[in-house]
């Protein structure tokens, strides 16, 4: 016999080889990931800088809901008004007028069907989720949302947000925001829900650094 074959040693060598190959095969991804992180950071930085130059803005939007429980996609349209750092008015004009006003941690909502209802984001989990979404789509301060979402950057430029926590993941699959390449403000937002439902938002007609009236954020009156 030319000597005993030492199976354990062969096995060990095999495992080491496999680990080496595996590690090697992942190296490009790791490198890509690092590059992606840098690109993402750069992009978020640019968005923030761009947003910082815009104290306030308003725009029109169109929302299209593709829900399984709707007989057909439903289109709503309205206006968005925002004044940094914490005031936002989301107002549907057609077909059913209603509005949501956020002012710091407080807010109110109203429609043509009933009285104004005030809320606190600390005590109303639904409106807290609403506020999180609205700021996520519009604020430009995306880095503040990193506790709640993971980000990835896509060409367009577009950002994809994925919820980090199960409670939010129960409602939101992912949010994709497509930006205006010049002003880095959202042009389209697509919200995908875990069951396949989708909401699309199209923002147009941006007007920047306006003198928005206080009453927009202190009252919920509909025109």
């Amino acid at each position: 016999m030319g000597g005993k074959v030492k199976y354990p040693r062969i096995l060990l060598a095999g495992i080491l080889f496999a680990l080496f190959c595996l590690a090697g095969s992942h190296l490009p991804f790791l490198a890509l990931g690092a590059e992606g992180d840098v690109a993402l950071e750069n992009f978020l930085q640019k968005v923030e800088e761009s947003s910082a130059a815009i104290d306030s803005f308003s725009c029109d939007f169109t929302q299209v809901k593709h829900l399984a429980i709707f007989a057909q996609p439903v289109e709503f349209s309205g206006h968005l008004s925002l004044r940094r750092p914490d005031k936002l008015r989301w107002e549907f004009v057609a077909p059913l007028p209603s509005a949501i006003v956020l002012n710091g941690k407080r807010g109110m909502k109203c429609s043509d069907r009933g009285p104004v209802r005030k809320f606190s984001l600390d005590s109303d989990p639904v409106m807290k989720l609403v506020a999180t979404q609205l700021w996520a789509w519009t604020s430009g301060s995306y880095r503040e949302l990193r506790d709640d979402f993971e980000f990835s950057l896509l060409p367009g430029p577009a950002l994809v947000f994925s919820p980090r926590h199960a409670d939010m993941a129960a409602f939101i699959g992912e949010i994709k925001v497509l930006f205006d390449p010049d002003y880095l403000q959202p042009l389209e937002v697509e919200i995908s829900e875990p069951g396949g439902d989708r909401t699309l938002l199209y923002f147009t007609n941006y007007r920047r650094n306006l003198d928005l009236k206080d009453v927009l954020f202190s009252e919920c009156r509909l025109p």
Partner: peptide, 9 residues
């Protein structure tokens, strides 16, 4: 159809 719809469906 409002932003609250997501949480309320």
């Amino acid at each position: 159809n409002s932003p609250a719809g997501l949480a309320m469906r």
